[in-house]
């Protein structure tokens, strides 16, 4: 049932991360309406209060706006979404560097390897 979550970090933060990914990728379009708390709770298979908390967190980050009567909406602010995409990419790149440094590559070697990868047909 529902989405998969990792051990060790709070579920509301993992929910936030998934929703941020969907906002960044455009799966949740700018200005579109978010699912009601209960619907997402059922889809993800989590407690409604956990969804509530994740939404509150996203509101605090300005990625989601709550309209008093009509529900919650993804921000329509293109700059905000661009920033989010930047922050998520940095996270992935940082993680990749950490992994590759762990294999003993220097930063120069990693950059060269990334270039190779990017220009190959893969």
């Amino acid at each position: 049932m529902g989405w998969n979550f990792n051990d060790g970090s709070p579920i509301y933060l993992q929910l936030c991360a998934v929703i941020k990914g969907k906002i960044a990728s455009g799966e949740y379009a700018p200005g579109s309406k978010l699912q009601p708390v209960r619907d997402l709770a059922l889809e993800a298979g989590v407690n409604p209060n956990t969804v509530q908390r994740a939404y509150a967190e996203l509101e605090r980050d300005g990625l989601v706006n709550a309209e008093r009567t009509s529900g919650r909406f993804v921000t329509a602010d293109a700059e905000k979404i661009k920033q989010l995409r930047g922050a998520l990419s940095s996270g992935f790149i940082g993680e990749m560097f950490k992994q590759l440094q762990g294999l003993g590559l220097t930063n120069e070697e990693i950059i060269a390897a990334v270039q190779n990868w990017g220009y190959s047909d893969k």
Partner: peptide, 15 residues
Amino acid sequence: PVDDVRQETGMSLDG
């Protein structure tokens, strides 16, 4: 709260 357990222990509730 379950999320506090996860935050504080770095484990799942099950763990």
